[in-house]
């Protein structure tokens, strides 16, 4: 029964993408326009490049930058957000600065990071980390601040210490809100991962795609775009799974309510 529902969900979710791929495939089959090559050719080239010959040179560096940068963003965002969210005084001092910094479009910061870090991976990781930090920080502050007063009263009467209250009550209670920030942060981190490779890099999916397009290797550029789409989708799906598992209590409770 569950199995069938699962299959049904996949069919419902997959028919439109399949239809679009089929339409792209047939509509482009006879194309002689050099900028819009047949999907069949793109797919053949995609297999040559990305299954998995070029992974070590282009995909793995990008994913490594994303992983390090995002991890830093999560630690700083959740840790800083927890502290700022639970201390009115601290947030009063820091918030104007946070509001200013987060208003700067993340991609625009890349040139500044080049000044500080040069053109190697540390620059990219720093830019990704900063971009990911702000949505995570903001949502953690909001989540921690919104802790149910009844939970806090309970923690207080049972004489939990301030740090126990923060890490064992406020932060777990905030997790559903924190996760929405983690999701936005991941999307932005992925964008900055690609964008940071547009400057001064020969490696990475972004760099590959840009160089291919500049060199009129249109087929290669198309495979790069396709790969970014697939990777982005895979990352988002993995995130959903992690969220479902981490917030099982939250979804379980909502389903019963």
């Amino acid at each position: 029964m569950r199995m069938w529902r699962w299959l049904l969900a996949i069919v419902i979710g997959a028919w439109l993408p399949l239809l679009l791929v089929w339409w792209w495939w047939t509509a482009s089959a006879e194309s002689t326009n050099p900028f819009f090559p047949p999907l069949e050719l793109i797919w053949t080239r995609f297999q040559e490049l990305w299954l998995f010959a070029e992974w070590p040179t282009h995909v793995l560096p990008s994913l490594r930058n994303l992983a390090f940068g995002y991890a830093i963003g999560v630690v700083v965002g959740v840790g800083g957000g927890a502290l700022l969210g639970s201390s009115r005084t601290a947030s009063r001092y820091v918030e104007p600065v946070v509001d200013f910094l987060r208003s700067i479009p993340p991609v625009a910061t890349v040139p500044v990071f080049i000044i500080f870090f040069g053109l190697d991976a540390s620059m990219r990781i720093a830019a990704i980390a900063v971009a990911a930090t702000f949505p995570i920080l903001i949502s953690t502050i909001q989540g921690v601040r919104a802790t149910d007063p009844t939970l806090l009263a309970t923690a207080s009467v049972f004489r939990l210490s301030p740090s126990q209250t923060l890490w064992r009550v406020r932060l777990p209670a905030a997790m559903p809100i924190v996760f929405s920030g983690l999701q936005v942060g991941l999307q932005i981190a992925f964008v900055v991962t690609i964008a940071s490779e547009y400057l001064g890099s020969g490696f990475g999916i972004g760099a590959f795609t840009l160089i291919a397009a500049d060199s009129f290797l249109i087929l290669d550029a198309w495979t790069g775009v396709l790969l970014m789409g697939l990777l982005g989708y895979a990352i988002a799906t993995a995130f959903d799974i992690v969220e479902r598992i981490s917030l099982r209590w939250y979804f379980g409770q909502k389903k019963l309510a």
Partner: peptide
């Protein structure tokens, strides 16, 4: 010390996670 509470709203007093 040595004081414990039971509140009306158990759904918000027990930690759901």
């Amino acid at each position: 010390k040595g004081l414990a509470v039971v509140l009306q709203d158990y759904t918000r007093s027990l930690m759901p996670w």
